Computed example of a mutant assay.
Amino acid sequence: MKKLNFLLLIILNTLLISCGSNSDKKTSDFSLKISNSKDSFQLGDTIKLNIENAKDRKIDAIKFKIDEITSEVKNGETQTEFILQDQKLGNQVIEALVYSEEKVDTLLIPVKIHNDVAPEFYTYKIVNTYPHDINAYTQGLEFLNDTLYESTGQYGNSSLRKTDFKTGEVLQKVDLTKDYFGEGLSILNNKIYQLTWQEGEGLIYNLDKLEKTGSFKFNQSKEGWGLCNNGKQFYKSDGTEKIWILNATTLAEENYIQPTTNKSISTQLNELEWVEGKIYANTYQKDGVAIINPTNGAIEGLIDFRGLREQVTQHPKLDVLNGIAYNPTTKKLYVTGKNWDKLFEIEIVKK
């Protein structure tokens, strides 16, 4: 796909931040503390919070918030607690608004929230094998009405294709200009949406003739990797820990989830596919696919595809697993890779 481009993740410091009507001060008289002195939690844990008052100022009220869930205390109370159950996973920030003497201090502290259950592990069984263009540097793969649509990458060789998956025949093909590196694709409301890598732009085509009809900008993420949709909104990966949630009409990146296990937050998630209410995502340069809860980001399963690459023709341009397509009509799952000469129909088997 691309050269590894590890983005440096910005780690929020536990420095206290003052703002609002108290913004003229460099520091705050208050500090936000986690009573159990942890910065990493799992769903089901309780986070106990306390406001320390260095100058014994009168506190009128305190509003605490984590991932849009709030708690408020009054009458001089300085403590609260959150039982983690509905929050999104990943890197989160706890916010406290301290109302005191007609001023408001805003305090922030970062936490990590992991899932409380380890992912299930799966392997695979090859059900059928079909031909695939060995020159296709596969970036995105999606079915519509038993027809397979594919996005390929590389500068000067990127394309959008409509194919007969059983024969491997390319029925229609549109080449991108040499300044575009094609990435993930997804189809919604008779339009095809194709990402580009570092160009900060997505391309829109009509479904029938594969004619380009428009484009859209990435308003928060810097890169385009994978794309899928649930019929109402898009999900877009960008190589970081975030999978962005896009408005289906405006294509604006309005929110995000962070794929997370019971131990870690994942990055480098690449090609995405919507499969029966879950997001399937392969990790770049790995032989695994994560099964992700789209509501909170929990990685509920991991599929081990090791050994599949050895089933295709070995040649100098052969590259990694990348390409997941689910046919909702037949409920069959297909995978391929970059410059693979085979497309595999796969049955997922629990280990």
Rank of each mutant, 00 (worst) to 15 (best):
Val93Trp: 05
Lys103Glu: 12
Gly76Ser: 08
Phe82Glu: 00
Ser100Phe: 06
Val104Glu: 14
Lys74Gln: 12
Val93Asn: 10
Gln87Val: 08
Glu95Cys: 11
Gly76Lys: 11
Gln79Ile: 07
Thr106Gln: 06
Leu107Trp: 01
Glu81Ile: 03
Leu107Lys: 02
Val104Trp: 03
Leu97Met: 12
Thr80Asp: 08
Val93Met: 14
Gly90Arg: 05
Gln79Asn: 14
Leu108Lys: 08
Ile109Glu: 00
Lys103Leu: 13
Lys74Asn: 13
Gln92Arg: 15
Gly90Ala: 07
Asn91Ile: 04
Val98Lys: 04
Gln85Val: 06
Val93Thr: 15
Ile109Trp: 01
Thr80Gly: 02
Asp86Leu: 07
Leu97Thr: 02
Leu84Trp: 02
Thr78Trp: 03
Glu101Ser: 15
Val98Ser: 07
Gln92Gly: 04
Leu97Val: 02
Val93Phe: 07
Asn75Met: 08
Glu81Cys: 00
Lys103Ala: 11
Asp105Asn: 14
Gly76Cys: 11
Val104Gln: 09
Val104Asn: 06
Thr106Arg: 10
Asp86Phe: 11
Leu84Ala: 03
Tyr99Phe: 15
Thr106Ala: 09
Ile83Leu: 15
Gly76Arg: 07
Glu77Ser: 13
Glu102Asn: 13
Phe82Ile: 08
Thr78Ala: 00
Tyr99Thr: 08
Thr78Cys: 00
Leu108Ile: 13
Glu101Ala: 13
Asp105Glu: 14
Ile94Arg: 05
Lys74Glu: 11
Lys74Ala: 06
Gln79Thr: 13
Lys103His: 10
Leu97Ser: 12
Ile94Trp: 04
Asp86Ser: 12
Leu108Ala: 02
Gly90Ser: 08
Thr78Lys: 14
Glu102Val: 01
Asp105Ala: 09
Ala96Trp: 06
Gly76Leu: 06
Gln92Asp: 00
Gln85Pro: 03
Gly90Cys: 05
Asp105Trp: 14
Thr106Pro: 00
Ile94Ala: 06
Gln85Ser: 15
Glu102Met: 05
Glu102Ser: 15
Gln87Ser: 12
Glu81Arg: 14
Val98Ile: 12
Tyr99Ser: 15
Asn91Asp: 10
Thr106Ile: 10
Asn75Val: 05
Thr80Ile: 02
Asp105Ser: 15
Val104Ile: 15
Gln92Glu: 10
Lys88Val: 12
Leu89Pro: 03
Asp105Thr: 03
Asn75Pro: 00
Lys103Ile: 03
Lys74Thr: 14
Val104Met: 01
Glu81Met: 11
Gln92Asn: 14
Glu95Gln: 11
Thr106Leu: 12
Glu101Val: 03
Glu81Val: 04
Phe82Trp: 04
Asp86Gln: 09
Glu95Asp: 12
Lys88Asn: 06
Gln85Arg: 12
Thr106Glu: 13
Thr80Asn: 12
Leu84Asp: 00
Thr106Asp: 04
Glu101Asp: 15
Asn91His: 13
Leu97Asp: 15
Ile94Met: 08
Lys88Ala: 00
Ala96Ser: 14
Glu77Asn: 10
Ile94Asn: 12
Gln79Pro: 02
Lys88Trp: 03
Thr78Leu: 08
Ser100Met: 10
Asp105Pro: 11
